[in-house]
């Protein structure tokens, strides 16, 4: 195992632990960090999507068992996101490195602002749903989930603007490889009024698909190097699993602020290196 593979595994693992706790996904930290360490954005993007796919897979089993994923809502927002991600991944090789670095810096800044500002509880438990089986409701974009022994019903709103925001997140993912979770989760929770736990789990599910779509394109273009990708994958799976366990112990607002601060630093470093 080479020194660079060890460094990549550790970096991807650390990014996944912090990203899972902060609810923004590991690649949002990993890709700008790789660029800050001197890797070209076009080379960092496939590694970012590998990290996204790994962290999504690591969290999938637990989230499915807890009935937190709203598959119908996830796929409704994923259709424009996947189309935008594939288109953006196809054109990303033709874009100047500085533009990609600018997109990454902007993405990291949006993630930082989202981490600093996101708060509050919108959906509350409803005793009339006590007999309700938790999970998504077939044929709708509504559902319910269990919170501290009570059932919380919810219904997605503002579907049109939500689809547009998902397409923007998909385009950012395809261009830069950051996954777009830091845009998708706030889209579902803040714009569409879905509970943040459901939004995070549903986003994690859709990020796996976004990663598959982007990686299929990168594989077709011959842009995936196996050793760095394997190193990132190991780090993302181990880090994502550790992050999921720690998630319940660290207060979410503190975790979000720590991650947001790191994102801010990364955005500044990327901008300084690119210009």
């Amino acid at each position: 195992m080479t020194d660079s593979a060890i460094a990549l595994t550790l970096l991807a693992g650390l990014a996944a632990v912090l990203g899972t706790n902060g609810g923004i996904g590991g690649a949002t930290l990993l890709v700008p960090a790789l660029v800050a360490f001197g890797l070209e954005p076009t080379a960092a993007a496939p590694l970012g999507l590998v990290a996204v796919g790994g962290a999504s897979l690591a969290a999938a089993s637990r989230q499915l068992r807890r009935h937190l994923v709203h598959h119908r809502l996830g796929l409704t927002v994923e259709l424009p996101a996947a189309a935008a991600a594939v288109t953006a991944a196809l054109v990303s090789t033709d874009l100047p490195e500085q533009l990609l670095a600018g997109i990454l810096a902007a993405a990291a800044l949006v993630g930082a602002v989202s981490g600093f500002t996101r708060q509050g509880v919108r959906n509350r438990p409803d005793p009339t749903f006590v007999e309700e089986s938790t999970g998504e409701w077939p044929g709708t974009l509504g559902g319910s989930y269990e919170l501290d022994g009570e059932v919380v019903p919810y219904q997605a709103r503002r579907v049109g603007p939500g689809l547009f925001a998902a397409a923007v997140a998909g385009a950012v993912a395809g261009l830069s490889g950051v996954g777009g979770g830091f845009l998708k989760t706030p889209t579902l929770s803040e714009l569409m009024h879905v509970p943040v736990r459901v939004a995070a789990a549903t986003t994690s599910f859709t990020l796996g698909i976004t990663a598959s779509a982007g990686l299929a394109v990168f594989a077709g273009q011959g842009r995936i190097e196996t050793e760095p990708a394997a190193a990132v994958l190991v780090g993302a799976i181990v880090g994502g699993s550790i992050g999921a366990v720690l998630q319940g112990r660290l207060a979410p607002p503190i975790a979000r602020r720590v991650t947001a601060t790191l994102l801010l630093v990364v955005a500044v470093v990327v901008v300084v290196r690119a210009w």
């Binding site: 796929l75 409704t76 273009q221």
Partner: peptide, 23 residues
């Protein structure tokens, strides 16, 4: 569930088209 059953096929189609174009 006809309202949503077509969605997975559409997304799989997008992924397949992206892969084929990238080749």
């Amino acid at each position: 569930d006809r309202r949503f059953a077509w969605l997975p096929a559409a997304i799989l189609g997008v992924v397949a088209v992206g892969f084929l174009v990238s080749l």
